[in-house]
Design a protein around this nucleic acid. Structure first.
Lengths: 150, 150
DNA sequence: TTTGAAATCCGAGGGAA
DNA sequence: TTCCCTCGGATTTCAAA
């Protein structure tokens, strides 16, 4: 992970469709060098995924909710696996406190949140209680850090 | 947003580098059609960004923290703008309760969290109090929903 | 709005420094 | 590792339906 790698990552973070040729010319190296670096970063697992960020409102998942969950410590892994399998659950984290698990959820609206997510969580063995944090507006959303001021 | 658009979005969500030709052949339409649809989705703002997801540990931002912030209601927009400008702050949401603002943060470690983020927030006019939720492990992270089971 | 063809340009791999 | 070169294939455009 030298400066070349970090520059490549930064450019791909801003636009993952950018051509290797463009990165190469800005870096002053050969296209094939950039090409191989990108593959290496991907194979090493530094880059996990090439993806897109959708506008939640325009793509039909307007409601973003964070949910804290407390569980029987013995069933934590089961619960996590159940959560991971839910399509509306975008992110799953483990914590120490005040919850055991914390998830980020996107749904069309509150009724979909209840039906597709909260109901499933409540019915999952090992779940003790949940606490939902509903958001009303999204002001920024990046998948990862872009060094340098925008 | 018909079935064609949704299929394109789903494929780009899984891999934003996928070729238009591949999407086209699976959909049974012309490559140029897919090409135009992708551009349209981007111009319409449905697709906000083509980006990558980095492994936090391997890319030097191992610590994911969520922070709830309460503010003077008159200074909410100022605070939000300050937060948006911070590189380590990946996501910024507005809520009704129990906080006014909720952010997702990535830093190298706790000391960077304190220096680059918590200190700045504490010194921002209008901030009443903050509450940090530190995560210990990431089990899933997607930028948006992928319909159909993985 | 979609299509199909044409021209340009890019990605991918192998061999040399 | 990086660079150069080349080929196969993708992107992009445009006129026509």
């Amino acid at each position: 992970m030298d400066l070349t790698d970090r520059t490549i990552i930064e450019k791909l973070t801003r636009d993952s469709r950018i051509h290797c040729t463009e990165i190469a010319s800005e870096l002053g190296v050969a296209t094939s060098t950039v090409h191989k670096r990108v593959n290496q970063l991907y194979n090493d697992g530094v880059i996990e995924q090439f993806t897109i960020i959708l506008n939640p409102e325009k793509s039909g998942t307007a409601l973003t909710t964070f949910i804290g969950i407390n569980v029987d410590s013995g069933r934590k892994d089961e619960v996590i696996n159940t959560l991971k399998s839910l399509n509306n659950v975008l992110e799953v984290y483990e914590l120490l406190e005040p919850y055991d698990i914390f998830v980020k959820v996107r749904t069309r609206d509150i009724s979909e949140l209840k039906e597709n997510v909260l109901r499933v969580i409540a019915n999952t063995k090992g779940v003790l209680n949940t606490s939902s944090i509903l958001t009303t507006r999204r002001h920024k959303e990046n998948a990862c850090i872009t060094k340098n001021g925008d």
